[in-house]
Design a protein around this nucleic acid. Structure first.
Lengths: 200, 200
DNA sequence: CGCATTTTTGATTCTTATCAAGACGAGTGG
DNA sequence: CCACTCGTCTTGATAAGAATCAAAAATGCG
């Protein structure tokens, strides 16, 4: 599936990637983003380990990519195989459509719940202690502002939602970047649009 | 580019398409849509003549398609060529990302302005009279409710925006479905996010 | 010519954005 | 080790934008 590849080892902190190649996230987190003329910014997708991106794939047009943590990526020398492109594009499109629903028709709380579940699935640590059933802990690589630009909200609203979830025992966190999911069922109900609770 | 094709001639009015084939819009208008559990609905894309869609292409997952006017489509017998899929997917992804920005970061007026320009480019009538410079007239195949579901708004807000544009001489319409663009420049400025005017 | 659907318009409410301080944490230099 | 500072996060008060509720006007259809 992969052509000749080189480990690029970019332990960049919030550096920018603009080279025209295809890349795969090995560890860490990459966010695609676009800036409007004025201050507005939008992050259409957040990529965890295993996800592919690069020119001619995803950041079509004028999207840029930025690493949000100590991140390493592999580069592919030639253009990737057509079959690979197809699979990745399909996944991107699927995610884009799901995200469109989120942006167009979900409340703030529903958006944050959806985001938490997505990030948990991409960044979950395997260390689920014997006691923890369904409890997942993961590193939220995004700041509140990044989350806001991903979810079409403001950073204050994101913070309020996370606070409300914490008070409601859906999640837990001491450090604002290390999140534990305590009640996945409730989060999923929220994300799906059931459960009208937890206004920001 | 096209394989053996048959004119399917579906002069359906808001009928539903669910067959697993690849289709091309010949004339009329097709909207892809998804329904959430409760009443909420979202239209991720609206397709005019020339656009391709169908299974394994666009309405990936559980998107459905619906015709919004007397519409005819061609069907392709086999699966389309890989190159065709690639081009179409790329276009869809591009549009999806642009739409994500609209949904995530634009005001109601900006969204409606963007939609009008998009629809004008897809459905413009060639009959630009000698006097009309830049004036385009087109048939808005979508109802206000459809527009709302496309733009992540309510039908009332859409109606108010259109009314505001009409009063501001940006557009004109007597029949609510036949729209004429009178000031394309202003609309484009609005759509781009400049010009803070015309709150709903 | 009614009847049903869509559109417009108005009044009000709600959610979220905006504005404004603080609080917390990490890193720096004395 | 301790101020100091910068960036992020939290929290509160207020405001703006769009949703909701409600009811007319158009429009289209049988």
């Amino acid at each position: 599936m992969a052509q000749h590849r080189t480990r690029a080892a970019l332990p960049l902190e919030r550096k920018f990637i603009s080279r025209p190649t295809t890349l795969r996230v090995v560890e860490g987190c990459v966010a695609l983003y676009r800036e409007l003329g004025d201050g507005r910014r939008l992050i259409p997708d957040v990529l965890g380990p295993g996800r592919l991106f690069g020119s001619g794939l995803v950041d079509v047009q004028d999207c840029r990519a930025m690493t949000l943590a100590a991140t390493s990526v592999e580069t592919f020398d030639g253009p990737p195989q057509a079959a690979v492109i197809d699979v990745v594009m399909r996944q991107m499109l699927l995610r884009a459509q799901a995200h469109a629903i989120l942006l167009g028709r979900k409340t703030a709380a529903e958006r944050v719940a959806t985001a938490l579940l997505d990030l948990a699935s991409q960044f979950a640590r395997k260390s689920r202690s014997p006691s923890g059933k369904g409890k997942t802990t993961f590193n939220l690589h995004l700041t509140r502002a990044d989350l806001a630009d991903w979810l079409g909200l403001t950073l204050e609203t994101v913070s309020r939602c996370l606070g409300a979830f914490k008070r409601g025992r859906l999640i837990a966190f001491d450090h604002p970047e290390i999140i534990t999911i305590r009640d996945r069922t409730a989060l999923e109900a929220l994300a799906a649009g059931n459960a009208r609770a937890f206004a920001a």
